[in-house]
């Protein structure tokens, strides 16, 4: 299982994402923002950080990086794509996911161990959880406040596309939304950082691991 992790100028958590892939049995593959070569990967992770310094809007410039054309095309064909934090912002800017992330209502950078409820296991990245499971994942951002128009929110709820919900809303996100998926379930974006909750030498909380192990199950199913 080859999982690509894109490095943009200003990405911070690309190395952690690659380590999380290794620790959960995958082969991490470095992808470069300026190349449109996806190097034959089976899935892609857009990592956290501050791509292009968050200039203009978070993710707005990264969305037009050469690597993104390929990712958008392949995601629309079913390639599993996970966007974490800045990666989620990029997926929204690329319109692979609806809505947008704006500045936290609390007007501060938020960094905490955030309790979440897993709302959907019918995605490429969440089948190893169970629905209704409570997990705690590191959350750290200044612009994690999920907003969309009422029709979009209703559609996400009706179609069961809210994947993670905050228990105790830290930033003003509508409907306590922490993560969502596309209609097909192959693209998932979330603000919390599961790649920081995978390594027993760093933390006793390994609640992020199922995101990475879910992918193996999904790819196995997809090739059968």
């Amino acid at each position: 299982m080859r999982v690509g992790v894109v490095t943009f100028p200003g990405s911070l958590d690309d190395a952690d994402a690659r380590r999380a892939i290794s620790l959960t049995g995958g082969e991490p593959v470095e992808l470069w923002h300026a190349s449109d070569d996806l190097r034959g990967v089976d899935a892609v992770i857009l990592p956290g950080g501050f791509s292009y310094g968050d200039y203009l809007r978070c993710g707005a410039i990264a969305r037009f990086a050469p690597v993104m054309d390929q990712i958008i095309t392949r995601a629309n064909q079913g390639l599993p794509v996970l966007g974490i934090c800045n990666g989620f912002q990029i997926l929204c800017e690329a319109r692979l996911l609806p809505g947008a992330l704006i500045r936290n209502q609390v007007q501060t950078f938020t960094a905490l161990d955030q309790p979440l409820r897993v709302e959907s296991t019918r995605t490429a990245w969440t089948s190893a959880y169970w629905e209704g499971q409570t997990i705690t994942i590191v959350l750290k951002n200044g612009e994690g406040n999920y907003q969309a128009d009422p029709d979009t929110i209703a559609q996400l709820e009706d179609e069961g596309r809210v994947v993670f919900r905050y228990l105790g809303n830290p930033n003003g996100s509508l409907n306590d939304i922490a993560g969502i998926t596309n209609q097909r379930g192959n693209v998932v974006g979330l603000m919390p950082h599961p790649e920081h909750n995978v390594d027993p030498t760093i933390t006793a909380n390994l609640d992020g691991r199922p995101l990475f192990t879910s992918l193996a199950d999904y790819l196995l199913g997809a090739t059968c």
Partner: peptide
């Protein structure tokens, strides 16, 4: 400009 129905935390701080 942020749309009227969208929160503007920066504007609020100012």
């Amino acid at each position: 400009m942020p749309k009227p129905e969208i929160l503007d935390p920066q504007g609020k701080a100012v």
